[in-house]
Design a protein around this nucleic acid. Structure first.
Ligand SMILES: [Mn+2]
Ligand SMILES: [Mn+2]
Ligand SMILES: [Zn+2]
Ligand SMILES: [Zn+2]
Lengths: 136, 136
DNA sequence: GCACAAATGCAATACGATTGCATCGTCGAT
DNA sequence: ATCGACGATGCAATCGTATTGCATTTGTGC
């Protein structure tokens, strides 16, 4: 059934790609290339790198720069069209457990930009302590 | 008079530091270490690196991760205390001219985080075309 | 099976961030 | 003014992530 997901987006469902997709679906936290490599060894990191780039282009995942500037990827929601006006959401980066989470339900608020600024995309990362770590 | 600025924040006003501060005051766009090195040559990049880190710690500048995850620094506003609840503002990264600008007047809107998430800091970068490049 | 294109793996490179260490300069204490 | 401590600077080396080049393997259509 994972195959279908990929084919739907014009991606040939190879073994590696299926494993990558599976990984994304099994864990909601955004993952870096390094983390992905660890979990899917012994698959080569280059292959994973290119898989991520392709997934991103095809709208399977989206990228976030975490608080250290490292790219992390997370599954797009079904409704996601990855455009600014459309669906962008806030991300949370926990200083304790280091996980970066998509807050799919928290839309990026409309910000009033000064005259002349044309927004197209956004990277919003709130840093702090996540729900699991805060115990609240 | 630049000296005073630094001394006020418990920073010894060395030649390099004064030049760095001067650079920040002369150009509002956020600068990366590389850009700073270019402009202040032949000052060593390590010295500049450490200067930036110190300036950041002392509250002279603040850091933003631009759309490529590269750290850029910009002068703090006088009123700035660099705390989340206090003053954080939105940044704009222009795809055309590549400049990252502090939108000091655009506060980061209060986002409703799900139960348990404790915000402490934020990195908000809107990508698009800036006022100078859009011609609007 | 054959021809061609896509996918994968491995090595090498690019580049920003950061550290180790030697040297230099400043400043207070003598 | 001299000495000594400590901070500041410079240079080289290293780390970590992102990215590319190229050879090889795999998949697909004919
Ligand atoms: Mn997300
Ligand atoms: Mn700013
Ligand atoms: Zn956490
Ligand atoms: Zn611009």
């Amino acid at each position: 059934m994972l195959d279908v997901e990929l084919v739907k987006k014009e991606i040939r469902p190879t073994a590696v790609r299926l494993r990558v997709l599976e990984q994304f679906q099994s864990d909601p936290a955004a993952v870096s290339l390094n983390e992905l490599e660890e979990r899917l060894q012994p698959v080569d990191r280059t292959t994973l790198f290119r898989t991520l780039k392709m997934f991103e282009k095809k709208g399977v995942v989206h990228a976030v720069h975490d608080e250290n500037g490292i790219i992390k990827y997370a599954l797009c929601a079904d409704s996601c069209r990855c455009s600014y006006s459309d669906h962008l959401h806030v991300h949370f980066s926990c200083k304790r457990c280091k996980k970066t989470t998509c807050l799919h339900d928290v839309q990026i608020p409309e910000v009033m930009l000064p005259q002349g600024y044309v927004p197209q995309d956004a990277n919003v990362v709130i840093k702090g302590v996540c729900n699991l770590c805060s115990g609240l």
